[in-house]
């Protein structure tokens, strides 16, 4: 377990900022308790200071996980956001999309969101913007990247993809062994 280097921090922050924008400051500068990012076996954990201090006393091979896993670094140094970060990402999300009940299952099985399943979408969402996917009852289901801007989606046919799938809560079952 160690703090992130500047390059690693940069990779993590740019990925998070794609979803929550300037709200990223609220993750770092929290009023309740100080939180920090820690790297352990290529995974980035978002930990409260007290848990981090407890975790220091655990030897590296014995430490399985701590805090909330936000994602992992690939071997080539790219950062991949995991579904476990959804709680924080959904809380501060800048752009959201709500999908109809009949679209929930396809999305939770790892498919992209098509226009037919689109319930609501935040106004003025640009193209290739990270968005959080909600069910119509405001339960966060995952996140993805918009294929088109909100204005452009009007002209599309119902089968066109509007959000590329990135992560969904179905991964808790599918990738149970590698997720945390």
């Amino acid at each position: 377990m160690r703090p992130l280097t500047e390059e690693e921090s940069k990779a993590v922050f740019t990925k998070l900022a794609n979803y929550i924008g300037k709200n990223l400051v609220h993750l770092i500068d929290r009023p309740d308790e100080p939180y920090c990012f820690r790297l352990h076996r290529d995974r980035v954990y978002y930990v409260s200071e007290s848990s981090m201090r407890l975790g220091i006393s655990v030897a590296r091979p014995n430490l399985v996980s701590l805090g909330t896993c936000f994602g992992k670094f690939s071997k080539s140094g790219k950062f991949k956001l995991h579904i476990t970060a959804l709680d924080y990402v959904a809380q501060y999300a800048k752009y959201k999309i709500w999908i109809k009940p009949n679209g929930e299952m396809p999305f939770l099985y790892g498919n992209h969101v098509v226009k037919a399943h689109l319930g609501r979408i935040t106004e003025d969402t640009p193209e290739h913007q990270g968005v959080v996917v909600f069910s119509m009852s405001d339960i966060p289901l995952g996140f993805g990247v918009t294929a088109r801007s909100t204005v452009d989606t009007r002209k599309l046919d119902p089968t066109a993809i509007i959000v590329f799938h990135q992560a969904d809560v179905g991964e808790y079952l599918r990738d149970e062994d590698t997720l945390f």
Partner: peptide, 24 residues
């Protein structure tokens, strides 16, 4: 070389905020 695991959390926070400002 890495930073020590246990640094004062305030400095860590400041570094992160500085990095954010720089990135912006």
């Amino acid at each position: 070389k890495f930073d020590p695991t246990e640094v004062p959390i305030a400095t860590e926070k400041k570094n992160s905020l500085d990095l954010l400002a720089k990135m912006e």
